[in-house]
Each structure stands twice: as C-alpha cells, then as structure tokens.
Simulated assay, not measured.
Amino acid sequence: MIRGNKIGLRARHDADIPVLHAVLYNDVATRSRQDPRPWHPIPPGSAHSPYAVGEPSDTAAAFSVVELDSQELVGAASLWGIDTHNRSAHLGISVLPDFRGRGFSSDIVHVLCEYGFAVRGLQRLQVETMADNAPMIAAAKRAGFTIEGTLRRSAWVYGAFVDQVILGLLVHEWLHEDETPGAGPLTAEEVKG
C-alpha cells in the first residue's frame, strides 16, 4: 500500500468490485463524465466491469482507495495510458459519494503522483477533466499540476458537448512541490473535492 495523509492506495480486492461497480459505474450521468466511451449496462459480477482487474499491465495501474483510519473503501484511482518510452501517463480518480467533500481527492492525487514519479520513474503526468469539475481541478492544482489548455466542446457528456481542461505535472515540478504556489492549507472549495 502507498500511503498519503488520509488515504492509501492498494491493490483492488474482489470485495471492492461490486461496490465500485454498483455505486460508481451505475451512476450513468457521473460515469459519462469520466469515460469517453458510451455507458452501457454491465451486469454485476461481469468480468467486463471497468473495476474488474486482470493481470498486471505495463500500461495501466488500478488501485482501490481506502481511508487509513477506518480502512473503508473510498473509491478508485488509476494511472492509465502509461507510455514507458515517453515516460508519461494519465491519472484518474473516482470517489464514492459518501466520501466526497472530505478533502480526500487532493491526497489521492498526491499519492498517485508519488506512484507515477517515485515508483514508476515517469517524467510527466496528465489529467483530463471537464471544465466544470472544480474539485478535480483544485485537487490537481494542489498537487502542483498546471492548466495547459482547454479542449473546447471535446467531450460528449450525457446529451451535450462540454469543454475539457488538460493539466500537466512534470517530475521536476513534483520534486519541488513545496515551492508550488498555493501549497498552503486547503480552501473550502478544495475540501469539497
């Protein structure tokens, strides 16, 4: 397990999959904001659940997120699109509704950066999120990510095209994150993430 201040990232357990699938995948409106592929019904227990984990992969690392104090399942996190030649990857997080607004998102992003940079030896991490996803943007910025651009109306989300924001973080910026502007206490908006 890789530990942050409030959460830990660990391997996905079989018992996590039904919870993540039922709560996160079956929330169609929210899931359509997280995955560029169209949502379609997948029955419980299916090997096709996006939360089912197969063999280890060089191109993706899927984690379950647990609260350190209680060991309760908080959500899911991953590095995906890992490119070992260019030493880059994308990161994504999904927090269960009961755990949103407690400041876990920033900690999850920090720990994913530690995994990507310190464990995997990557040099760049990237986040793509909807422009109105203020909690994710705030969590990424707290970890030192910089907004690199906006892809206008690039994502089809539950009946409408919306803008996506691209954020990036380089390893040398992560190593100096204590010097990152805004590295002080969380704001009320960031805590909601």
Results as ranks from 00 to 15, higher is better:
150 T>Q: 12
66 V>Y: 03
119 V>S: 13
39 W>R: 00
181 P>R: 07
188 A>Q: 12
23 V>F: 05
93 I>S: 14
7 I>R: 03
184 G>E: 03
170 L>A: 09
6 K>H: 13
20 L>N: 02
180 T>W: 01
26 N>A: 07
167 L>M: 12
111 V>P: 02
162 V>E: 11
48 H>M: 11
71 Q>C: 11
139 A>H: 00
96 L>S: 01
62 A>M: 15
20 L>Q: 05
128 E>I: 14
169 L>K: 01
171 V>E: 00
150 T>H: 09
149 G>W: 06
32 S>H: 05
84 T>K: 12
62 A>L: 14
15 A>C: 10
139 A>K: 02
138 A>D: 09
193 G>D: 03
84 T>Q: 12
123 Q>K: 09
44 P>Y: 07
65 V>H: 02
155 A>K: 13
30 T>M: 13
84 T>V: 07
39 W>A: 01
71 Q>H: 11
180 T>H: 07
114 E>N: 11
62 A>H: 15
170 L>E: 07
18 P>A: 04
119 V>E: 15
4 G>L: 01
160 A>M: 11
110 H>D: 15
67 E>D: 13
56 P>Q: 00
88 S>T: 10
124 R>Q: 09
120 R>S: 09
134 A>W: 06
12 R>A: 08
193 G>E: 03
93 I>G: 05
179 E>T: 01
157 V>G: 03
139 A>M: 03
183 A>C: 09
17 I>E: 07
54 G>E: 02
81 G>K: 08
158 Y>C: 12
146 T>M: 10
73 L>G: 07
166 I>L: 12
114 E>G: 14
135 P>N: 00
7 I>P: 01
34 Q>Y: 09
14 D>E: 15
3 R>Y: 10
42 I>E: 04
90 H>F: 10
165 V>T: 10
96 L>E: 01
40 H>N: 09
67 E>N: 10
37 R>M: 12
85 H>V: 11
86 N>G: 02
37 R>E: 14
42 I>W: 03
131 A>H: 08
75 G>F: 02
8 G>I: 13
34 Q>F: 11
4 G>R: 01
131 A>E: 03
32 S>K: 07
153 R>M: 13
10 R>Y: 04
124 R>T: 06
79 L>I: 02
98 D>L: 14
75 G>S: 04
37 R>A: 15
72 E>I: 06
45 G>V: 08
176 H>Y: 03
4 G>A: 01
68 L>M: 09
173 E>M: 00
19 V>Y: 02
80 W>R: 15
77 A>Q: 00
154 S>C: 10
98 D>T: 14
193 G>Q: 06
130 M>R: 13
59 T>A: 13
164 Q>I: 11
35 D>M: 12
100 R>M: 10
75 G>T: 01
147 I>R: 13
98 D>Y: 08
146 T>Y: 06
70 S>E: 05
114 E>M: 12
56 P>T: 03
5 N>S: 15
73 L>P: 05
180 T>P: 02
115 Y>S: 06
143 A>G: 06
51 Y>V: 00
55 E>L: 15
96 L>C: 04
81 G>M: 08
97 P>A: 08
59 T>S: 11
101 G>Y: 03
93 I>H: 08
61 A>V: 11
34 Q>A: 14
128 E>D: 11
63 F>D: 02
37 R>V: 09
135 P>K: 00
98 D>Q: 15
170 L>W: 05
4 G>P: 05
70 S>T: 15
72 E>G: 08
109 V>K: 03
14 D>S: 14
132 D>Q: 11
95 V>M: 04
52 A>E: 14
189 E>G: 10
